[in-house]
């Protein structure tokens, strides 16, 4: 029972309460650079998710053998290995996306969200929980990437799923939607400043929702806590 609860908490943390992109504000460099379209966001999101899961599970499995002093180097080795693996695999199987995401795949190594989870969670919990944590954290990160990519794509070029075939194969070319036909799209959305503004707005919306929820939460009766007697009386 407590297990179920723990998974629930992990899920809420990863997707909302402690979302790596919106709350921890980690891994912003790839997040802001590649989210010009949904496809790019999704690609990098999936890559990050895979790395995060892989590294979390591995770190958790080896945690008993790793002395405290060298845990960070070991984590880095694990993460770097996974990133390189993903990079090689993407290069081999999704070449178009590989060229589109370009230099940002190796940058996943320095995504603090990953080493942060390894340090904060995976190194203290069993492998299945760590893996699940990696999955929801990665999912939370990927969702933000996709959301931001979607926003920027719609405002900046009026489409959605442009270039999905690069990621998902030729069938996905039909996913492309032309939502709005701009004569003059708001180019800033696709350019890097648009990513900053967009992320800022998403964070603002998230905080706004949190505030609303807090306000709405019914005032629970306050249980009086036991007061300690400092003295024998």
């Amino acid at each position: 029972m407590s297990n179920v609860n723990e998974y629930k908490t992990l899920t809420a943390n990863g997707l909302w309460e402690n979302n790596p992109a919106l709350v921890q504000l980690l891994g912003l460099c790839p997040l802001l650079a590649v989210t010009g379209t949904v496809t790019n966001g999704l690609g990098l999101g999936i890559a990050t998710l895979l790395v995060l899961m892989g590294s979390n599970i591995t770190v958790s499995l080896v945690r008993d053998w790793v002395p405290n002093e060298i845990r960070i180097p070991v984590f880095v080795i694990v993460i770097a290995t996974f990133v390189t693996l993903i990079e090689l695999l993407m290069n081999a199987f999704t070449y178009g996306l590989y060229t589109a995401l370009g230099i940002f795949i190796p940058l996943i190594v320095t995504n603090c969200a990953i080493i942060g989870r390894a340090e904060a969670y995976a190194s203290k919990n069993p492998w299945h929980k760590a893996g699940f944590d990696g999955f929801v954290m990665g999912l939370g990160f990927a969702l933000v990437l996709v959301l931001l990519g979607g926003l920027r794509e719609i405002i900046g070029q009026g489409t959605l799923f442009d270039g999905a075939d690069l990621l998902l194969g030729p069938w996905a070319a039909s996913l492309r939607m032309e939502l709005i036909q701009f004569d003059y799209p708001l180019l800033v959305a696709i350019l890097p400043p648009g990513a900053f503004i967009g992320l800022g707005l998403i964070i603002a919306v998230k905080n706004g929702i949190d505030l609303q929820r807090k306000r709405r939460a019914a005032k629970q009766p306050i249980a009086k806590a036991q007061r300690a007697r400092v003295t024998s009386q």
Partner: peptide, 29 residues
């Protein structure tokens, strides 16, 4: 001694893994 050996072991395993994958995907790339 302990830290050095453990770290080296990790590095060796990781490198070996990467080399294997690179070998497997080289042609395709």
């Amino acid at each position: 001694k302990r830290n050095g050996i453990i770290l080296a072991a990790f590095a060796a395993v990781a490198t070996a893994l990467l080399i294997a994958v690179q070998w497997a995907t080289a042609d395709r790339i």
